[in-house]
Design a binder for these strands. Structure first.
Lengths: 339, 339
DNA sequence: TACCAATGTGTGAACGTGCACACAGTAGGA
DNA sequence: TCCTACTGTGTGCACGTTCACACATTGGTA
């Protein structure tokens, strides 16, 4: 595994020599400062001629800044493919970082091997900060960031999140309460839930909100737990729910993908939606409009979540001291056909 | 915008001092070499005590290698959200790079501003190579990579691709021909196509394959062009196709998302599928199984595309000289209910 | 004349790392 | 005894950049 060095590239020295000046002057042309018109012209000519590009690694070493921010997706396999929010969050973060002339680099964490490598990468000076999405309780990455005091922001927050790290999220409990209440106000009495991802704040809070909204109507037997927010979990979860109680007339699915799966299972079982059973989801993802019937759901401002998280990191990078805690973005309910 | 430097971090000097040895010995502990047992023990103790982490930026500068490979997604907005393949390709690439202990960093290019910044990033020494997905004809990024002679691989290849850059793809024309032929062999006569992304090789080749398969049956009037591979384009495209000829009995959609949209438009128009109209898609994405009816489609080995592209980059990084050209992965046809 | 400010340029040091080299001590064989 | 091989350690340099400083020239003012 002997790896040949890449071919030599032009440096500030080379263009200084070509333009007949010193490297200091070249640096001033690149970064601003007093430079005479003729020197500037000669240097710019030399730069375009040899096709010089500055070496970011050297700059990062000297400046202790890379102008890059990591976007860490702590996602198991299926989620990354089925969760439509992650893409929107990324695009929102990228847009905000782009405006501040920062490069977003996104890192996928799938395995333990990935975790260790990403931790090394984050601590190695290649990035100035990090946006962390969908962290689970006690994820090692959180520890690394906290130990390093790397400027960071979370999208959603795990229960044991270090209080010094700011976050942006939505009011999962409140939103779940609101949509469950509306479902209930339609006159439905036997309302179940397909709960998912109970190792994350989002999963736990949605379940809590559901329980609060039902009050005395709540029946723990009508809560089916599935591991992930995906379609397949929805199909299985709904089958299980029907088996536990064939009289359910309402279902709160912890995500749109789960709701779509539930619709499939209900079709299988010959139940009509919303006639026999009302179904509501969560996310307002592309799933919501392509289902039959279209889903009533909680709109999640994914793009805004991304850009807000980016802002939180950028503000820390500018030396601002953020008061601890986070902010919650509003989540309007979208009422469609499924309930 | 005065930005404070991050707090000082421990360096090799610090742990050398703490362990009572020289920096060279510390370096040998980290990278292998002759070190006595007691020196090693003292150094390792010092490392864990002060929580030392090596500075990758300095290492990258010295070694001219970063152990990182860029994954460049040249995707307009809608595609990144609607194309399920991009996620699988990413995961495949990440897995392969992970095994070789390389960090995958993915960069999103949405705007002209992004293009310029990503070009700078790629040329700045932060990555050793690049995987480029879904490049369009004459994309500036291609030029940058080619000028820099950055080890790279493409997933799919634009028509004017520099021959020295290897690629991995699928036989779009052959696959389109195959599935169109099977659709035709069911006895259908008025077969249309919803063609998309005609500024890319994939879009062009799928259209060509369709034309070849139909031969004399081909009617240019039954080809509707839409800009993207997404659901919305499918709905609009199918409406347009029905307007042009209400007698169509078969449709080849350039992607599963488009096919799903077409199903929606057909439902709107009161046509049954596959009774009145047979529909086939392309990608075998999650769309295919969640449609009603489920889609007959071309399976695209997204994960393998990602890992193959990663291998191509890794081989160049190991100094291997690749013969020009690319490789095409097989694409089995999956026959389901929609045709 | 002497002094200061403004403009323009060159030089040395440092960021943190890895590697080549020099050097020291020990052991074994001719 | 001398030469060589092996193990172990310290030092100087280079990677490419930016910044602080020194220095030079000009023109205006006390």
């Amino acid at each position: 595994m002997s790896r040949p060095k890449p071919q030599k590239r032009a440096t500030v020295h080379d263009i200084a020599a070509a333009a007949g000046v010193s490297r200091g002057t070249v640096s001033r042309v690149l970064n601003g400062g007093y430079v005479s018109a003729e020197a500037r012209a000669a240097i710019e000519a030399a730069i375009t001629e040899v096709g010089y590009v500055p070496n970011n690694a050297a700059r990062a070493l000297k400046m202790r800044r890379s102008q890059a921010v990591a976007f860490v997706a702590l996602e198991p396999h299926s989620l990354f493919l089925d969760d439509p929010n992650i893409g929107s969050i990324m695009l929102g973060a990228n847009a905000a970082l782009s405006l501040a002339d920062h490069q977003m680099v996104s890192l996928v964490v799938e395995s333990a091997r990935d975790t260790e490598r990403v931790a090394r990468y984050l601590s190695g000076g290649f990035v100035d900060g990090a946006i962390v999405v969908s962290a689970r309780t006690r994820d090692p990455i959180i520890r690394v960031i906290s130990d390093l005091a790397l400027p960071a922001a979370f999208v959603g927050h795990p229960p044991d999140l270090d209080q010094s790290i700011p976050f942006v999220g939505i009011d999962n409990a409140g939103s779940a309460r609101a949509i469950t209440t509306r479902l209930r106000s339609g006159g439905r009495r036997r309302i179940g839930m397909i709960a998912a991802a109970l190792d994350r704040d989002s999963g736990i809070d949605r379940l809590n909100g559901f329980r609060e909204a039902l009050g005395s109507l709540f029946d723990a037997d009508l809560v089916v737990e599935v591991p992930h927010y995906d379609y397949g979990s929805g199909v299985k979860g709904m089958r299980e729910l029907l088996q536990r109680d064939s009289g359910v007339d309402g279902v709160f699915a912890a995500s749109d993908a789960i709701a779509a799966g539930a619709l499939e299972a209900l079709r299988e079982a010959g139940r009509s939606v919303p006639g026999d059973v009302g179904v509501v989801g969560f996310d307002d993802s592309t799933w919501a409009v392509r289902c039959q019937p279209t889903l009533s759901t909680v709109h999640q401002p994914a793009k805004e979540l991304g850009s807000c998280a980016a802002q939180l990191v950028l503000r820390q990078l500018n030396g601002e001291h953020l008061e601890p805690g986070g902010q919650l973005l509003p989540t309007p309910i979208v009422w469609r056909d499924s309930a």
